[in-house]
């Protein structure tokens, strides 16, 4: 499965919404319950799904899903 598809599953699981469809341009503005509180839950779920670890600074610098996918691919490689 592609990174985007796997990430989408994580999004759906964390935000409890099967209708979520993500793209590179998706930001926190586009998903109602994506706030600073749920952001950390998302990070931990992604770490688990992809068996990677993100640093504090990496977590805070993410601006959209595209950057998130890029970071995951960099870590997985």
């Amino acid at each position: 499965m592609e990174t985007t598809e796997r990430l989408q599953e994580v999004f759906r699981d964390v935000f409890d919404d099967d209708a979520i469809v993500i793209s590179d341009e998706t930001t926190a503005e586009d998903i109602e319950s994506w706030d600073s509180l749920t952001h950390v839950q998302l990070i931990v779920a992604v770490e688990k799904e992809f068996s990677v670890k993100f640093s504090t600074v990496e977590v805070m610098k993410l601006k959209n899903v595209g950057e998130f996918i890029e970071l995951i691919n960099k870590k997985v490689r």
């Binding site: 952001h39 950390v40 990070i43 931990v44 977590v59």
Partner: peptide
């Protein structure tokens, strides 16, 4: 505080 206190603590706790 969200970036340097809350997020790292929360992340550690739920991991």
């Amino acid at each position: 505080l969200r970036d340097y206190v809350y997020s790292p603590i929360f992340k550690r706790l739920i991991s």
